[in-house]
Write a protein that binds this DNA or RNA. Structure first.
Lengths: 192, 192
DNA sequence: CGTCACGTTGAACATTCTCAACCCGAGTGG
DNA sequence: CCACTCGGGTTGAGAATGTTCAACGTGACG
């Protein structure tokens, strides 16, 4: 099992036709699934996006923790449930949000997650993700994403440049996204 | 925690604008998340789609099982990992497959899952899902889904009528979908 | 026999993609 | 120091895909 301490990574899948779908962005504190070793093979890939500091925890250590430290085990379960909630939110975005709503929603999510782990407090934060990568996570073309970002910029909602996001009007962003942070279970995560 | 013994159910989310996104279809043997009680609130809803037989397992019972029967606990983890793999496959479908590929992919998934739990063996099986519901799971309009189904029918791939799917050419269906069943981890699930 | 949910179809429209061109800043080799 | 290249990013125009709206069909059920 891996845990990211610093930097970013992502889960993704390459389809037979060569297109890519990003399934999740991993930030410091995020872990690969518990018990992934139980499955015979991986159904997707994981790769870092920046220089990153990653630690591994052996399987026997994990099992020891589960027995000896139920509160840590508990926190790990919760973290996994949050990951699942995030996947459900992504499915919802892909299925039932327009492109601009999807972009806004992802930005809200990344902003909240970055804030929760203390990466930043201002409405300006590092986002070391190329537009191509973001497009592959949002199920759209890099070209179209670029136009959507332009629109968000012109509407004075947010700007994305050189790996850095600046949120101008968070309220507007949330309104466009129809964002409800309950799936991130912030309070619980913060408590854990 | 709930387990479905007979019948179908689905997880779904209603957005502020009134649209619905189906997140998962639950068949006999499927369970709600372990430890869902750990989270303060649910980020989605669950509802049966047919008459169904559902059993509940109390939280203390679960914990007891986890301690006393590690192999059952193991099987439950695996089942949860399979559910996550399914969510990843859905994200991939929504993001990077055309509507006909998406429909074909879902049909492959439902067919394999139904076969795995012994619901049927022939390439004809009950599917008590309205086109509106299927459309809400595939991120498309019922109207468009209808046209896609028409195309699949005319191409002699499969037909869907009155709650019953008949797969005419499974090879063609798999080819259209670009379907790879590894995410369902059939062997492991079958073994568990 | 009326109603109601679901399925089917057509035509106009909107959204998103594709392809192609161009820009720009960061490295790199001459 | 300059020209070259290369990976993003940006823009335009036409084409494809999917939606919307509206009409009509059809079987189940009271």
């Amino acid at each position: 099992m891996f845990v990211i301490l610093e930097g970013w990574a992502h889960r993704y899948k390459i389809l037979p036709n060569g297109t890519r779908q990003v399934l999740a962005f991993l930030m410091p504190g995020d872990a690969c699934d518990l018990h992934i070793g139980l499955l015979g093979e991986m159904d997707h890939s994981i790769q870092t996006l920046t220089n990153a500091l990653v630690t591994t925890i052996g399987r026997d250590e994990i099992e020891k923790i589960f027995v000896d430290h139920p509160r840590i085990a508990n926190a790990m379960y919760v973290s996994q449930l949050v990951d699942e909630g995030t996947m459900r939110a992504w499915i919802t975005s892909m299925g039932r949000r327009t492109s601009i709503e999807r972009v806004a929603h992802l930005m809200c999510e990344l902003f909240i997650r970055a804030r929760n782990i203390g990466l930043q407090t201002e409405p300006v934060f590092d986002l070391p993700l190329s537009q191509l990568l973001l497009a592959d996570s949002l199920g759209m073309t890099a070209v179209h994403l670029n136009r959507v970002l332009k629109e968000l910029r012109q509407e004075n909602v947010m700007t994305l440049t050189r790996g850095c996001v600046s949120i101008v009007d968070i309220g507007k962003l949330i309104r466009i996204a129809g964002f409800d942070d309950n799936y991130l279970h912030r309070r619980i995560r913060a408590a854990a």
